[in-house]
């Protein structure tokens, strides 16, 4: 028995076609994401042996895998965006972001846990969360839903990590000196990140400029 026709989109499905990014622009951003996620998982992994706090070692082991997994999502997305050589796009958007990552990874000693965590979880991770949220909210929910799906996987992990790490950082800040150390470190790295324009370069989280927006 033939059923009566229905609208192809449910009345509650408000997804629209237009999106802000071309295929090329999407591939460019995704390549920068992969590069940055790699630096995050490497640094977290490398720090484990140098951090004496047992609970933090274990969390970094878990978080490092999250970011390796995110980098792999972007690695696999690149050929789907016509980039057949993913390595070519796996780059920093500019030398300023490379400088930011070098400074992010600079703390080394076993007395630098606070500096390590503030850099990673009060500067780098929030930058990732805001860039991914901007991307998710501005790309086409129909044509680019594979990118949205990966962004959402990443954001789920990132939001959880952010809360967990913030609570850990608060537990490490016990007096005015610690508070100052944390604030100084955050300011130093934020300044470098401003120079880079964000993890995907200028426009990482869009623009308020009347013409550009």
């Amino acid at each position: 028995m033939a059923s009566s026709p229905r609208t192809p989109f449910a009345p509650w499905d408000r997804r629209e076609l237009p999106g802000k990014f071309t295929v090329e622009e999407t591939a460019r951003r995704v390549g920068h994401y992969k590069w940055f996620e790699m630096r995050m998982f490497e640094l977290m992994a490398g720090w484990i042996a140098t951090i004496p706090e047992l609970d933090i070692k274990l969390r970094l082991g878990t978080h490092s895998y999250h970011h390796a997994f995110h980098s792999e999502l972007w690695h696999k997305r690149l050929p789907e965006l016509r980039e057949m050589n993913p390595e070519r796009k796996t780059v920093a958007p500019n030398p300023e972001l490379e400088a930011f990552v070098t400074e992010l990874g600079a703390p080394e000693g076993d007395d630098k846990t606070l500096e390590k965590l503030v850099g990673m979880y009060r500067v780098a991770l929030p930058a990732v969360i805001s860039t991914y949220t901007y991307h998710r909210n501005n790309t086409s929910k129909i044509t680019d839903s594979p990118t949205i799906r990966s962004l959402q996987f990443c954001l789920n992990d990132d939001m959880e990590e952010w809360v967990e790490a913030e609570m850990t950082i608060q537990s490490l800040i016990t007096d005015a000196d610690d508070a100052r150390r944390a604030a100084d470190r955050q300011a130093e790295l934020t300044t470098l990140l401003i120079a880079a324009g964000g993890i995907a370069g200028p426009g990482s989280v869009g623009s308020f400029d009347l013409e550009e927006s």
């Binding site: 490497e42 070692k57 082991g61 490092s64 895998y65 970011h67 390796a68 997994f69 980098s71």
Partner: peptide, 12 residues
Amino acid sequence: KLDMARQCWDEA
């Protein structure tokens, strides 16, 4: 490298 990160999670 991805496998080593995975191993970090497992060992944690």
